[in-house]
Design a protein around this nucleic acid. Structure first.
Lengths: 368, 368
DNA sequence: CAGATATATGAGAACGTTCTCTGTTCATTG
DNA sequence: CAATGAACAGAGAACGTTCTCATATATCTG
C-alpha cells in the first residue's frame, strides 16, 4: 500500500489482470463495469497505492476542476473573507483553488490571468484593478473561459458579477449621520482612478442628480455617490473640502486625511470612511491625535472588521457580506462551468448598518 | 491574434511551416533553434494567440510549477499573512499556489493533501492539525513529494519546518509582566489536544524543569511552557487556576475565560493571551465587562494584529513574523524542489515584544 | 423468437506537450 | 583532407488518462 514510485492505471490493470480500459472505468467511475471487476481493480489499486493523475485526466477531458482567483491582496480582511467564501463552495464541489494577488496592479493582474489560463483553470474569479482597460479579460471570454467579477465592474465587459450595493450603502451610512444631527460630514475615500473629469466635476454631476453610469464606477466612487445623494436628500450642499481622496489603497494615505479635515476652519463633526483600509487609517489618526470617539468626532465606517465590535465604544459601520459575496461568485462560476448559458447576471448584495457607539447624537443649532 | 478555439503547438508548426518538434523547441525554450525559425514560429504563435498548455507540459516533465498549501483558515489573519509570504516567493519564481483550508480538522487536511497530490503539486506546505497521526504526510515523503511544515511539528516526521520560537516568546511575554510588578498572571490559551497526561501533569513536569520533547508540542502548549519557565525564573509558583484552557481555536471559547479568571477569590492582575484569536476573545470579554486597560487589568497578547496598535491604549504583544514565516517556508520548499538534499532543517524565527500601553507598572506590596 | 437494448470488456486513438533518436549541414581541427 | 563535433531540424515515442469503436453476452420488448 505504501509504494515509492507512483502507480498508473496500466500498472493497476496489469496486477488486476484486466485491460487499462476496464481499470480506467473502475477507477474513473465512468462506463460499465461488473462488480467482480470493480473489486479486483480496486484491490489492486489499493495494493499499489494508486493515485489518479489529475493532469492526464484534465488533458483529455479538458476540465481541471480548478478555479482561478485573482484577488487584490490575500492579507486584506476583505479579500481573505471573500476567498474563504469562494473556498467554501469550491471545496464542497471538489474543486481546487489557484489563488494569486494583483496588488491592484493591472500588469500583475494580466500576468496572473495568463498563469491561471495556462494552468487551464475551468473558470476565473477576478477583482479587476482597472475598470477600463481589460483586454486580458475580454480575451478570456473569446476563449470561452467563464469569468465572474467581484466587487468591481469593467465598462463594456458584460459578465456575471457580484458586489455590495455600494451606492445605497454609502447613502445609508451618511443618512444615519444626518439623522443624528450632523451637518458637516467628512468622507475619507480611496478614489484612486480618475472617473473621467475629476472629483469636482464628479461631485457637480452627482449633486445635480445625473444618474451617470454608476454601475461601472469603482466602489469608492459609488460610496461617494451615496454620500452625495444623502446630502441631496437632507438638503445639504456638499462641501468639496470635506471629501478627502486618499488616492491609493493604503491606511497610511487615509491617515493623512483626518488631521487635514479636522484642520479646516469649519471642520466636520463626523466622518465616513469608505472601506476597511480607510477605516484603519482613520483610526490610526484618531489615536495619534488622541481624539475621543464619539465626543470629539463621530464615525461611521464601511466593512465590519473584527476590532470594530470590541473597541470602546464600538464602531458603527456598514457591514458588507464578504463571505456571501465570495460564495455567490463561486456558485455563479460553477453554474457557468456546468453549462449555464443565461445572459450575464449582476448580484448586488445589500450592506447592513450596524449601529454601535461611534455616532454622537447632536442637538441641532436652531440658527442653522 | 484573438482566436476562438485554442491553438496548439501543432497548429503553430503548421502555420510556420516547420515540424512540431521545432515549434516546441522555440515555444518551450529548450534545445537548439535558429534565429530564423524562432522568428517564424513566434510570429505564427502570436498570430494564432498560442498559449502553452501547462497540463500537457506537466504531464511529460513531471513538474507542474505549482505549490500546494493546506492552511487552517485563510480568513484568520495569521494564515492570511503566512499565505501572503508564501505567495510572494512563489510568484517571484513563477509558481502557482493551490490553497485549501483544513479548519484544523485532520480529516479535512487528509482530504486536502490528497486533492493537492492528485493535482501533482511539486511540493506542499502544511500547518498540520494533528501532531501525532500523520500517515498522509509520511505518505508524501515516501512518494518523494517535498513537504514543509509551518507553525507546528509532527512527532516522528522529520522534514523542513518553520515556526516562531514560541517557548522563548511565551517566556518573554510573561517575564515582561513580572518585571512590571505583576505576580498573579492569567493565561488564556487554546491547548486543544491533550499533551499526554493532561494539563495538571504538564504543569508539574514543566515546573520541575523537565526539558520534555518541547519541539513537537502545539504552539499554545509551547507558549504555556514559556509561561511556566518565566514563573520559575521569577520564583513564583504557577497557580493552575490561572491557566484557562479554551479547548478550541475560537474567540468565543477564549471570551469565557476572562470573567472566569477574574472571578477567582485571588484574581490575576494581568493576562497573557497566546494567539490572535484568544486575544480577540479576551478583548470582547474585556469590552463586555467594561474593564479599563491597563487600570483594571494588564494585558500582553501574542501576534501583532492591526487593531492592537490603534486601540487606546495600544496593546502590548509578542509580534511573530508571519510574512517571513511564509516566505521562509516557501523558499525552503523551492530549494527542495530544485533538488536540495540536506537533512531536514528547522527554522525558528524569534518573536519580538512590542511594548505599548496595556501593561500597568505595579508597586509591589512589601508584604508579599 | 427476432430485434432491440442494456451491460460488459478490450484495443487503440487522442489530448498537447517534451523527449529521444536519427540525420544533415557546416565549421573546426590535427 | 578525413575526422570530429556543434548546431539545427524532423519523426515519432512517451506521459497517464479518457474516449471511441468493435465485439460479445445477457435481458427486455412486442
Amino acid at each position: 500500500m505504501v509504494v515509492r514510485n507512483k502507480a498508473t492505471i496500466a500498472d493497476v490493470a496489469r496486477v488486476a489482470g484486466v485491460s487499462t480500459a476496464t481499470a480506467g472505468r473502475v477507477l474513473g467511475g465512468y462506463g460499465y463495469t461488473s462488480d467482480e471487476m470493480k473489486d479486483q481493480v480496486q484491490k489492486a489499486a489499493r495494493q499499489l497505492g494508486y493515485r489518479p493523475n489529475a493532469l492526464a485526466r484534465g488533458l483529455i477531458t479538458g476540465k481541471t476542476r480548478t478555479l482561478g482567483v485573482v484577488a487584490g491582496d490575500i492579507q486584506n480582511p476583505f479579500y481573505a473573507s471573500v476567498l474563504r467564501g469562494i473556498s467554501n463552495v469550491a471545496e464542497a464541489d471538489g474543486f481546487g483553488l489557484l489563488i494569486t494577488n494583483s496588488d491592484e496592479s493591472r500588469s500583475k493582474e494580466v500576468q496572473s490571468v495568463e498563469l491561471l489560463a495556462q494552468k487551464q483553470v475551468d473558470g476565473l474569479i477576478v477583482t479587476p484593478s482597472d475598470t477600463r482597460k481589460a483586454r486580458h479579460l475580454h480575451n478570456l471570454l473569446s476563449m470561452e473561459i467563464p469569468l465572474v467579477l467581484i466587487d468591481r465592474a469593467v465598462a463594456g465587459l458584460s459578465v456575471d458579477r457580484v458586489a455590495a450595493d455600494n451606492i445605497a450603502a454609502g447613502e445609508q451610512a451618511v443618512r444615519h449621520l444626518f439623522e443624528a444631527g450632523h451637518r458637516r460630514i467628512g468622507i475619507i475615500a480611496e478614489l484612486v482612478e480618475d472617473e473621467g473629469d475629476g472629483l469636482a466635476a464628479f461631485l457637480a454631476r452627482a449633486a445635480s442628480g445625473d444618474p451617470m453610469e454608476a454601475e461601472a464606477l469603482y466602489p469608492s466612487w459609488q460610496r461617494l455617490l451615496g454620500y452625495v445623494r444623502a446630502h441631496r436628500i437632507a438638503g445639504v450642499a456638499v462641501d468639496p473640502r470635506l471629501v478627502f481622496r486618499a488616492g491609493s489603497y493604503s491606511a497610511e494615505a487615509a491617515q493623512v486625511g483626518v488631521p487635514l479635515l479636522l484642520g479646516l476652519s469649519d471642520p466636520p463633526t463626523a466622518l465616513f470612511t469608505t472601506d476597511g483600509t480607510m477605516s484603519e487609517g482613520a483610526m490610526r489618526a484618531i489615536t495619534a491625535l488622541n481624539l475621543s470617539i464619539p465626543r470629539d468626532l463621530s464615525l461611521v465606517c464601511f466593512d465590519d472588521l473584527d476590532w470594530m465590535s470590541f473597541m470602546q465604544p464600538g464602531i458603527s459601520t456598514m457591514s458588507q457580506p464578504r463571505l456571501a459575496m465570495g460564495e455567490a461568485a463561486a456558485r455563479m462560476l460553477l453554474e457557468r462551468i456546468q453549462g449555464e448559458n443565461c445572459p450575464p447576471r449582476t448580484v448586488l448584495l445589500p450592506a447592513e448598518l450596524i449601529s454601535r457607539g461611534s455616532v454622537l447624537r447632536r442637538v441641532l443649532d436652531p440658527a442653522v
